[in-house]
Simulated scan of single mutants.
Amino acid sequence: MLLPNIAMWAASAIAAIWKISQLVRLPQDKDLRVVTACAVLVFTALSAQLTVGATREQLGQLPKLLQNVILIFFFALLILLLQSVVHPLTVRSRGLFEVVFALLANVGLVVIVTTTAPGARGYSYENVDASRPGVAAFYLVGNAYMVYATLRGGQLAWVAGGQTESRARLSLRVAAAGLLTCCLGTHLPRTITTSGWLLLGRTLLPGTPVWTTPLLAIGIGIFFMGVGYPGARTAIIKARLWLETRHRYRQLRPLWQALCERFPSIALFPCEKPIREAFHLRHMRLRYYRRVIECRDGLVCLSPYVTEPINSTIPTERQASLFYDALQRSANGVPVSSVSTIAAPQTAGMEADTQELLSLSRAIDRHRPHQYRPDLTNVGQPDRDLR
């Protein structure tokens, strides 16, 4: 059963790292502190579980005891957090009960471990010695508390989800489903089985050491999916916006490159080759907006050299042809009397402006003259022709 345990540990590690990174950015968020503490406790408990097999000869039952103690404190914190959301007026009185109940469960586990002979202690539920009353009692106490904690936590998470209209609603409902999966698929069957071992001397549910562990991994995975859903959704939205911004940024390059070759002073930084530009990952929105502004500045500089008036009825392909013609005229330093703005937006707003620039840039890239070869060696340097 090593693979499910590793899967649970990996999920808890990702959740703990993610919540810690959020807490670093928002250290004053009290609810986030509690959630982060819960995630770290789960990670610590599952880490202790993984060490059981590797250190059982040296440390005996200590890692297993540590795992159960930490998990009990985790669920006490989780229930208190959900209680403060669902029934904030009763959180003080109910919180005292949860703390006392968790302490009693932990005291029971410690007493059982310290009074059980070392050779009789089970190292994990999968290889538990059911003939030993102390071992059966240890797993009965731990799983009985977990039945209560997962059932209570799932019920509170479901009710809390019904009280919110934000995207946290789905998050809480998924987390509740994960807790109920752990309860019904793992802790309740194990409680029934250990009760049969201890009270009747026989197994009431066969095979629980085999099929309950995968269900526990599934339940924990669903729980962390619910906890991580809002952040994952935000990350997906940010990634989509980043990709769209990067795509637009690269689409503007033909227009921007041609203007920077003729009017180097519009570029804040020296031009880079496309292959190097492809590795720009940070500050993409800032780079994109800067390129939009530089393109518009370049078109303003180019406008005195446009030979005919331009309005919204002129096709983009025709504007691209006039654009290259104006570039040739500007190289000769011969402005015309009229001033026309290429790719003028039809409506106010930056989005309308950028859409016109993108359309013009695509048309320029499609209809670039074969004889036109931009020289970017002076980009980022003062333009002597504009002095």
Rank of each mutant, 00 (worst) to 15 (best):
V42R: 01
E126F: 13
V52L: 04
S337F: 11
L204N: 02
L140H: 05
L299E: 00
I6G: 03
F74C: 11
R121P: 00
A11E: 00
K238G: 06
P63N: 02
I14A: 09
K19E: 07
V306I: 13
T193S: 09
F43A: 10
Q83A: 04
G178Y: 03
V300K: 12
A175Q: 04
V113A: 15
V86G: 05
E98L: 15
K238Y: 06
L180C: 03
V227Y: 01
R248F: 09
A232S: 10
L103R: 11
Q371K: 12
F138W: 07
F223E: 00
P118Y: 11
G219L: 00
D353A: 09
L41W: 02
R366Q: 13
L268D: 14
M8T: 15
E126H: 14
P118I: 03
L66F: 10
V40Y: 06
R287C: 04
T193C: 04
I266Q: 04
F97H: 14
L96Y: 11
A176P: 03
T115C: 02
L50Y: 05
N332L: 14
A160I: 02
T36G: 10
Y288L: 06
R366P: 00
R33D: 02
A235C: 05
F43G: 01
S21K: 14
L170N: 11
Q371F: 14
T347E: 08
P274S: 10
Q355A: 12
F224Q: 04
H370Y: 10
P133C: 07
A15I: 05
A331N: 07
E308I: 10
Q251M: 11
L109W: 03
G154R: 00
A175W: 02
G134K: 01
T203R: 07
L77H: 08
G196H: 09
F74G: 01
P382I: 13
V85R: 13
I20H: 06
G221N: 05
L59E: 10
W18K: 04
Y229A: 10
M146Y: 02
I266Y: 07
F75S: 01
D375L: 01
R285D: 11
K19C: 12
L205Y: 07
W9H: 08
R287F: 05
W158A: 06
H280Y: 10
H367V: 06
S340W: 01
S265G: 05
L65S: 06
L109N: 01
I275P: 00
F269A: 10
L80T: 08
P374I: 05
L77R: 11
K238S: 09
T51A: 15
C271I: 06
L357D: 07
K19M: 15
S321F: 06
S12K: 04
L81R: 10
L216I: 05
L358M: 13
M146E: 01
G207E: 05
G53L: 03
L215S: 03
C182E: 11
P4R: 00
R296M: 08
G349H: 11
